[in-house]
């Protein structure tokens, strides 16, 4: 089964390559609608990466939330904004050098810290089967407090959205 293993590895690299290429497209394409479509490709590539890491649940949730909900909203916003999708807008301004050098600095720091960290691998966690049931049990027992807080925040956001979106009586 060595060949299959290598094929799976090839798939992982292909997904990564597509993700990176699409990410470059997001910031270089001139039409904002095309950028949004490229962003969808990025998110699907990340989902494919999750699958290759045997986290199917995360992959599916990624597609359901990001591609299904958030990107739909983004595209909807583009379509509702009058004529923004027609134009081809230059996406970069003249501060490219400045931001690039800052980003390079940040990246140097970031990559350095990634290399320096020794990444203790927990063998129990490596082989653990993290499916929806395990996650749900963890939310309801060990992490119930943060879970409740997030629920409250979401409800506040929902109520706020309803109040903001309500038509004037």
């Amino acid at each position: 089964m060595d060949v299959l293993h290598n094929l799976a590895r090839l798939g992982f690299f292909a997904a990564t390559l597509v993700t990176l290429a699409a990410a470059v497209m997001v910031v270089t394409l001139r039409n904002i609608f095309h950028c949004a479509l490229a962003l969808i490709l990025v998110l699907l590539g990340v989902a494919a990466t999750y699958i290759s890491l045997k986290a199917e649940f995360f992959a599916v949730i990624q597609i359901l939330l990001y591609v299904g909900a958030i990107m739909t909203l983004v595209i909807f916003a583009i379509m509702l904004t009058s004529r923004i999708g027609d134009k081809t807008v230059l996406q970069n301004n003249r501060q490219g050098l400045m931001s690039f050098s800052l980003l390079a600095l940040f990246n140097a720091f970031f990559i350095g810290s990634v290399i320096k960290t020794s990444w203790h691998l927990n063998p129990a966690a490596m082989t653990a089967n993290v499916d929806a049931g395990v996650l749900g049990a963890a939310f309801m027992n060990e992490y119930v407090f943060p879970f409740e807080i997030i629920s409250v925040v979401l409800i506040v956001a929902l109520v706020g959205a309803i109040i903001l979106g309500r038509s004037d009586q």
Partner: peptide, 20 residues
């Protein structure tokens, strides 16, 4: 798939993008 039902729901939302 052990997340088959979610997979179905997630993938079927992608048709919206194509319609767009």
């Amino acid at each position: 798939l052990n997340v088959g039902l979610l997979f179905f729901l997630a993938v079927s939302t992608m048709s919206t993008i194509a319609i767009f």
